[in-house]
Design a protein around this nucleic acid. Structure first.
Lengths: 159, 159
DNA sequence: TCTTGAGCTAAAGTTAGGTTTAGAAATTAT
DNA sequence: ATAATTTCTAAACCTAACTTTAGCTCAAGA
């Protein structure tokens, strides 16, 4: 059983294509939990290649590292995940993906509805749409076409 | 004609919901081109609210500020964009959006194909897929499931 | 006129997801 | 045994898209 020794970080790097620095960074973010050998170097399970694959895949799916950490925590500690584990997690992926696709399709529909309509202003017609605003990322309110909550044409005059 | 005086940055901020600092930042990025009054303060056209709306919308569509600057440069300098201008630009949006939706749908299809298949490993079955890798963002190669270009099970031994 | 509130600039800070650098220690190859 | 790789840590640096801060100046109302 040559398993107990574990593999070095360079091996995982080579097999995954990730930079050594990225793997170390994932450890700081709680995504990997290597142990140390007598000399203080990190040692990983061979199966951690799969863990790294999972991280890369989840990133492609648009998840942040904290979210991915959440997924990984649902895996039974230390052991190689089972097909059921992956299936459970992938259902979460599916929901996330569905939501993103739906948002984009709504945006596209709005856009399609307006490209040919010849109206005064594309933003006014198709894109000033509260639904779209659900997709916004910044903090604080943003009003398309200047339609702030007051909805008035003039700013407030009073003190 | 009360138009020639222009409006102050605070007005645009209030009408758009964007922070004053964000509007100034957009100027540094070449997205807005206000002039200055006698006292050195920025003055904008009222119609620049639409310009800001456009920026916000384009950001929701996933464009970066340099890309948005590119769109805005196709607008005839300074004047309020016509319906044709918006239509032309929105066609570019449409392509971008289509591509993103397609990528996500392919990912979803792969995922769907595997959730019920009972195979050994979700990543191995559904997600080790060169097509998906087209969606990758990082620089340098990344190999899912450790399948590096050598495709061997063991790392190279020779010098 | 005086006093706020709004605006100005330049520089530094923020978040995410890392990379780069530097110098030292461990490991591997010859 | 010695040379060449790897690995280690800590801290600095990077991009994008902004925000915050500090110290002033401008503009508008009582």
């Amino acid at each position: 059983m040559a398993k107990s020794a574990g593999v070095a970080i360079g091996y995982l790097s080579e097999r995954s294509g990730l930079a050594v620095s990225a793997i170390r960074y994932y450890e700081t973010q709680g995504l990997m939990e290597p142990w140390r050998n007598a000399g203080g170097q990190r040692r990983f399970h061979r199966a951690d290649i799969r863990r790294l694959s999972f991280i890369m895949i989840a990133q492609q799916f648009g998840f942040s590292l904290p979210e991915i950490r959440g997924f990984l925590k649902t895996l039974p500690g230390g052991r190689t995940p089972t097909p059921e584990d992956w299936a459970r997690i992938s259902t979460g992926f599916r929901d996330h993906l569905d939501a993103r696709i739906e948002t984009l399709q709504k945006m596209r529909d709005n856009l399609d509805g307006c490209i040919g309509c010849g109206c005064l202003s594309l933003p006014k017609c198709a894109l000033y749409n509260p639904q779209d605003q659900a997709a916004k990322k910044g903090k604080g309110p943003r009003y398309l076409m200047g339609d702030s909550p007051e909805t008035g044409a003039e700013p407030e005059k009073g003190a």
